[in-house]
Design a protein around this nucleic acid. Structure first.
Lengths: 210, 210
DNA sequence: CACTAAAACGGAGGCGCCTCCGTTTATTAC
DNA sequence: GTAATAAACGGAGGCGCCTCCGTTTTAGTG
């Protein structure tokens, strides 16, 4: 589960300062983030940093040089995953009809949140502390969803009176009931249901989808 | 995880509780809380638990038996201090005129909060997690303050149109500006100012007080 | 008092966190 | 290619967390 697309998104230092990082340093940094993403997903945010360093084939000192605190590392991983999620929106939009793209993305969103629910507590703290991070990330997600919805509306495959923040809210609701064991299947069914609701009354027939 | 104390989930952290606790256990528990209160005030909530145990003259194992997690210990200390603060209200009310009691208590309140501001972050997390704790404690404080105010109103030494939650809010505002170095003196001045405002228009002259 | 069971004690041990600094490596200049 | 320098590496070391379990103390009972 949680198999990340191996496509290692190019993690360039970006932002305001494009500071030249030495080749080995960049390599190690990427490896650390990659391993940390898996470790956090598997063991939660309390995963052993020493083990992450070991798995990444670097010393613990290297990890701490790149990420002075655990929170730094968590934040980078979190941003990366959210960005990957948003990038998937574009990707899906390119290769599928708008309504299919929307549905698949919503399912991916729910999967993503579910994977992260172990981190919920710590993430909540992190997001409380760093509210800029929160608004930044939720802004990106909102934008991605809105674009998918607008495309589907323009295409006529879903009804036009859809408010994207309502949909996001609904997705959040689906996420917040992960008690049982088959939450995954249930979530998928709920997403389908939601999608049917969105298709209802659309100008274009849902069945023909082509 | 295995050895659960005979006391079931119901656990009342009260020093005066008549609990079936062995004499030595009670002694050690009290000592730990006492030492922890000082340690947390001095070094913040991240104070070394091993050092606390050492200072209390017990082994680290004993500390963990009484308080399975750091948060347990912090909570007990916090409750104790809040209760002591509230008890001070009664104490002051007995030995001073109502308005003097009110003023002194407010100053003590501000001092208390200021002392704890190092713990603010952790306490906030704790109070988020344990909202029962929050409402419980803030309820007690509110009650103590209201009683002091009502006594002063009845006595005629402060005006009668005073809302106790407004005053609490004002005290909170005083607390929330502890940047500078002389915050302590400033806080006291602000408390005095607030008190003057409360005295303004009272039926009884504030000056004559002794 | 002696005796016993249960309760409590305490600290060693294993692990993770984080810092510090001697060693290694990439890069740049010749 | 070699040399020089800054950047990066990595792991030992010291400390704190928490658990586990053999030892000690207390509270009963006769």
């Amino acid at each position: 589960m949680a198999s990340q697309p191996p496509a290692t998104a190019k993690d360039k230092p970006d932002a305001t300062a494009a500071k030249p990082l030495r080749a080995d340093a960049q390599r190690n940094r990427d490896a650390l983030v990659e391993v940390a993403a898996v470790a956090f997903a598997t063991h939660g945010v309390d995963a052993s940093l020493e083990e992450i360093a070991r798995h990444a084939g670097v010393g613990i000192g290297t990890l701490y040089r790149h990420f002075p605190t655990r929170e730094h590392l968590v934040e980078v991983v979190y941003r990366r995953e959210v960005e990957s999620l948003c990038a998937a929106a574009d990707e899906l939009a390119l290769h599928h009809p708008p309504d299919v793209a929307l549905e698949q993305w919503m399912q991916r969103f729910v999967d993503y949140i579910a994977t992260k629910r172990g981190l919920a507590t710590s993430l909540r703290i992190l997001l409380n502390t760093n509210s800029a991070l929160f608004s930044d990330m939720s802004g990106r997600v909102t934008l991605a969803l809105r674009q998918l919805i607008e495309a589907a509306v323009a295409d006529g495959s879903i009804r036009s009176d859809v408010d994207s923040s309502d949909v996001l809210h609904a997705l959040g609701g689906i996420y917040s009931a992960p008690d049982t064991k088959d939450w995954r299947d249930r979530s998928r069914r709920l997403v389908s249901l939601l999608m049917d609701g969105l298709r209802f009354g659309a100008t274009k027939s849902a069945k023909g989808g082509g």
